[in-house]
């Protein structure tokens, strides 16, 4: 009996080492794995920037001056990446845009849909479509403000330790006047050390 139990135990242990393991990571509580830019940083940056825009009062002031209208904004193509990492910087801007729209802070012009929209408008202007119901040319809304910024880092490598300082600076400027309506930065410095012994 003991031998059978032992055999079963060995089999269970052997099998438990096999197969793929999947686990869900909570994005809200996720922490960075090392000193490099990580998904956890995206949340820190978005949260920090949204809180800063809210505290600045720029969009509330705009609404008060324009009969409750929300400012029309546009995203810059990407953040200026001055780091030594290949980062999808557009993702940072898009996360902020998503949050601003969710919180009803602004309207956004989709800069990346221009060609697609133009193609549709041109097609709908032909006799293939019911002209009375077709989308009309000449109603594009121009952005009054642009959200843009840059991301920089300073990295120090000392043996197995990496220290990385990262700074993300964003601003909103008025297209007509070039006046900056809001700017803020999120910065952090993180150190990570590789294990001395590897497998």
């Amino acid at each position: 009996m003991k031998r059978i139990l032992l055999l079963v135990l060995v089999c269970v242990l052997a099998v438990s080492g096999c197969g793929k393991k999947t686990r869900v990571i909570d994005l809200e509580t996720d922490v960075a794995e090392d000193a490099d830019f990580s998904s956890a940083d995206l949340f820190t940056i978005t949260e920090g920037m949204i809180n800063s825009i809210k505290a600045n009062g720029f969009y509330q002031l705009y609404a008060a001056q324009h009969g409750g209208e929300k400012p029309v904004m546009l995203l810059a193509e990407s953040l200026i990446n001055k780091t030594d990492e290949h980062i999808d910087t557009r993702l940072v801007l898009e996360k902020i845009r998503t949050q601003m729209m969710k919180e009803n802070m602004a309207q956004f012009v989709d800069d990346q849909a221009f060609d697609m929209a133009l193609e549709q408008l041109n097609m709908q202007a032909t006799d293939l479509y019911d002209n009375a119901k077709a989308a009309k040319l000449g109603n594009f809304v121009g952005a009054k403000y642009i959200l843009r910024g840059s991301i920089s880092n300073l990295r120090k490598q000392d043996g197995r330790e990496t220290i990385n300082y990262m700074n993300v600076t964003l601003d909103i400027f008025e297209v007509e006047t070039l006046l900056m309506k809001w700017t803020d930065e999120v910065e952090y410095k993180r150190a990570s050390t590789k294990g001395k012994v590897r497998r």
Partner: peptide
């Protein structure tokens, strides 16, 4: 860069 500066017993 993952293995740089590390040591493997095996």
């Amino acid at each position: 860069h993952e293995i740089e500066g590390t040591f493997s017993v095996s």
